[in-house]
Design a protein around this nucleic acid. Sequence first.
DNA 1: GTCCATGTTCTTTA
DNA 2: CTAAAGAACATGGA
Length: 270
Amino acid sequence: MPELPEVETIIRTLRPSLLDRKIERVRIHRQDVIHPKNTDLTSHLTNRAITALERRGKKIIFNLDDNAKFYIHLGMSGRLTLAAAQTPTPPHTHLILDIASSELRFTDPRRFGGIFWLGTNQSPDADLGPEPLTIQPKELAQRLKKTSRAIKTALMDQKLIAGLGNIYADEALFTAGIHPQIPAKKLNPPQIASLTQSIKTVLNRAIHHRGSTLRDYRDSNNQPGNFQKNHQVYDRAGKPCATCKTPIIRIVLGGRSTHFCPKCQARKRN
DNA sequence: GTCCATGTTCTTTA
DNA sequence: CTAAAGAACATGGA
């Protein structure tokens, strides 16, 4: 569910309550959301203070006062919420960290997400491409020219560029006026420049609106985002394009729904 | 019952 | 061998 803007919103809403606070108790309801699977998370976390909370791609990274790190990935349906102690725990809550008089809860019905222990030796960016908010056109061009996959599919590859998912890949391609099915290596320099800028514009706007809530997403205070109201193409199949009124098309690429305006994102440019 | 879902990883195919 | 395509994971809502 959560892509870069949602994860960024979550860390911003969590920071004031978590920074420099001690994890007093660890409650594990499902051991199988913890990776590697034999990690003794209780020993690692109990009585440690959280010294920094960061985002890398879609990962939420916790830095501890002993220099160890771990990250939480929310997968498709995960939530990370802060609630007053003793308030009812939602179903599918797999991990609770008691911090001050609150509970930090990891809740994830589909369990595609998890908690990943890094310790002091592993880096959270081992398997991630560059950050999209700061990437330069030259670097994006260099990476895209190595693959013949559809540009939409390439943008969702976290090793190529980190943080974009199905919503923001579609939205960025619309803003750049690029057809999602064009092979990545076929984009010309002006298109790459436009795409680089569009990615940043779309993500920054989405962060400003606190992310998109289609169904599952909530920030750490359980509040939905608002950016879905500004979607130009995502989940708008059959509805008129805001620019030209042509109905938005839905196709499947890489097994994922892909939405675009056949006129504003025509293959042949004019 | 069917299809679909904001993601990633493993397996199969070319 | 490698890149790309497809299937799998688990749950719930329309």
